[in-house]
């Protein structure tokens, strides 16, 4: 059933796949993020309790959900790498780590900026904020462990083990709201059958969620290509590719200069 996936274990095929997917990811991300953000900021109705400050939800919730989602994706990639011995799986895992860390940072920062007017403090040791902070530490641990090894093959395996150990923390993050009863309001959109949010408020949120996801995909394709180039530096196909791409950009630059000089 999964046989069609196996060719992509080869770095060359994975690189090509990234190149094909990349423009779609970027275009989709840009489109969804601009629609969702403008809709959320300007057209969605005001929340009757929180006024306009609730509009931070349109970036806070997507980044919070996807910071966890990216970590789970990393753990799955690590598991795939272990089971099938795919080097590309480890590479995509480490390609996702920095962008996941950025998502976690965004969730923490917007949470703080939302908490200041609502709770009166930039930082509250509430369960969800705290577990999001722990998630940031976990990301940093994986990145630091990967960076500590000289041999990147070994580094990928080691970081993979740590990602899998850390994934135990994800359910704790998710159920922390129920476990430690605190200030933070309950989950807003996980209850699809009976959403506690009006549909005209929900749509921009879902669009932005998709936009964030596509953005993560787009950055991951770029970083995965970086990772492949870094590790396959001495393979002929990478060398011809590097020459071609650099020559292309130089040509384009020269053409641009000619145009400006002509004007």
């Amino acid at each position: 059933m999964w046989k069609w996936l196996h060719p992509y274990a080869k770095t060359e095929r994975a690189y090509q796949l990234c190149l094909t997917l990349q423009p779609w990811f970027w275009a989709g991300a840009l489109l969804c993020l601009s629609i969702g953000t403008v809709w959320g900021l300007a057209f969605a109705p005001q929340d009757y309790q929180q006024g306009d400050s609730f509009r931070i939800i349109y970036i806070h919730v997507p980044s919070a959900i996807l910071s966890m989602g990216t970590y789970v994706a990393m753990a799955i990639a690590a598991l795939v790498g272990m089971v099938w011995q795919w080097r590309t799986a480890y590479m995509s895992m480490i390609a996702m780590a920095p962008i996941g860390a950025v998502m976690t940072f965004i969730a923490l920062f917007t949470g703080a900026a939302w908490g200041k007017p609502m709770w009166g403090a930039w930082w509250v040791w509430d369960a969800r904020l705290t577990s999001e902070l722990i998630l940031l530490f976990l990301y940093m641990g994986v990145i630091a462990l990967y960076g500590a090894f000289e041999d990147k093959q070994q580094a990928g395996k080691a970081a993979g083990v740590m990602a899998l150990v850390g994934v135990v923390n994800i359910p704790i993050i998710h159920y922390s709201v129920e476990w430690w009863n605190t200030l933070h309001q309950g989950a807003t959109i996980s209850k699809f059958d009976n959403p506690s949010i009006a549909p005209e408020m929900l749509w921009p949120l879902l669009i932005n969620l998709l936009g964030f996801a596509l953005f993560i995909g787009a950055v991951t394709t770029v970083r995965l290509r970086n990772e492949i180039v870094l590790r396959e530096m001495h393979r002929p196909w990478v060398q011809t590719l590097a020459k071609e791409q650099l020559a292309n950009t130089q040509q384009r630059r020269a053409a641009n200069q000619n145009m400006t000089e002509g004007n």
């Binding site: 976990l138 940093m140 641990g141 462990l145 500590a148 083990v161 740590m162």
Partner: peptide, 25 residues
Amino acid sequence: IAVGLTVGLQKGGVLLALLLIPVFI
């Protein structure tokens, strides 16, 4: 687990703490 991962590294000490403290929370 973390000791097993960092045992081959020259300066594993601080890294070990970075890896383990969040897991112990």
